[in-house]
């Protein structure tokens, strides 16, 4: 029973929200915030894999997100709608409700392949130099998209609204919300399984002492590749979902500012803490909304917040610990019996 308590809790939470949405208890604005929370959770947990658990310093997460967003969106528009550029629909529009996860996954896979661009240089270099490489990849992705006119170039790409509405035509439930819940659950589940296994802990060994890890039997190159690809793939999935919340994307949404936002979430929650990343993604989404009336000052206040955090609690809210370590009582509910911390 305990083994599945977190799954059950998450499942019932999602169901509750979905019912609330269906019965119009939640207005569109609140729905939007909840959906952004989901996307942010995927982004922060996936970046934490590289920046927290593996101790690298990737500053270009939004680039991978962009790849996923564009691949999924273009695939969907090409397959399921009649479009001026891509011609008539290839598949019946209704089938999108089954195939959306597939296109989403495709976006993730392509993003993971772009992640190789970062993973391979990381064999030879790390730290500051790798930071620049990730930054460069972010810019490369953004300017590549800006230069591909077929998908709208700098103007952006739209048509995802039609995809969403053709989902609604089949069954009228909040589809995007459902996919986001599924994606968020999937991502946290995946990362949790990864970092709690001996295999996945290899990346923590890489962070602590890469040379020792390699000599003591960890295939450091493979671990780096796996971690970077997993991280960027999940960011791609987050991007695909993000595109379908808005129904419209442009390269300007995936700048270094977006990457910075994700980094803030990771460091706010604590490096190497999965529950910390989830919490900070939720908290940060709310803070972002609360600060919205401040307009520009928002982007003075948020960095200031992080600076103060670095000064007074540099390890972040949780820092290498999980909620169950901070509140041991939670362990009774969430940690299966007979498992060592």
């Amino acid at each position: 029973m305990r083994k599945y308590s977190s799954h059950l809790l998450y499942g019932s939470f999602c169901l509750l929200i979905l019912i609330a949405v269906q019965e119009n208890f939640l207005n569109a604005y609140l729905q939007l915030i909840i959906m952004f929370m989901g996307v942010n959770i995927i982004l922060s947990t996936s970046l934490n894999l590289v920046n927290g658990y593996m101790g690298e310093f990737s500053v270009g997460h939004a680039g991978f997100m962009a790849v996923g967003a564009y691949v999924t969106s273009v695939l969907n528009v090409w397959l399921f709608t009649s479009d001026r550029v891509f011609g008539p629909a290839v598949l019946p529009a209704g089938s999108v409700i089954y195939l959306f996860p597939v296109t989403l996954l495709m976006g993730g896979i392509v993003a993971a392949l772009v992640g190789l661009l970062v993973a391979i240089p990381s064999f030879k270099t790390r730290g500051d130099y790798l930071a620049i490489i990730t930054l460069a990849v972010n810019y490369i992705v953004k300017s590549a998209i800006e230069n591909i006119q077929v998908i709208g170039g700098a103007r952006g790409f739209m048509g995802m609204r039609n995809i969403v509405s053709s989902m609604h035509e089949v069954v009228n439930v909040p589809w995007v919300m459902i996919w986001i819940f599924a994606g968020t659950g999937f991502s946290v589940w995946l990362i949790h399984r990864f970092v709690t296994s001996t295999y996945g802990k290899g990346i923590v060994a890489v962070r602590d002492d890469e040379i020792a890890a390699n000599i003591m039997g960890v295939n450091t190159r493979r671990m780096k590749m796996v971690a970077f690809m997993l991280s960027s793939g999940l960011a791609g999935i987050a991007g695909g979902l993000f595109a379908h919340i808005l129904g419209y994307i442009n390269p300007g949404s995936f700048t270094i500012m977006k990457s910075t936002e994700v980094m803030v979430m990771v460091y706010l929650g604590g490096m190497g803490s999965l529950s910390g990343s989830v919490l900070s993604a939720v908290g940060f989404t709310i803070i972002l909304e609360l600060f919205r009336p401040l307009q520009v000052i928002k982007w003075v206040a948020i960095p200031l917040l992080l600076i103060l955090l670095m000064l007074f609690r540099p390890e972040g809210l949780l820092g290498h610990r999980e909620l169950t370590d901070v509140f041991p009582r939670l362990r009774r509910i969430f940690v299966p019996q007979g498992k060592r911390a």
Binding site: F57, D128, A131, T260, M263, W299, I302, P303, L306, M310
Partner: peptide, 11 residues
């Protein structure tokens, strides 16, 4: 410190 620097830039 690097992150702080990044944030100072934004500020």
């Amino acid at each position: 410190v690097v992150i702080t620097a990044l944030m100072c830039g934004l500020i």
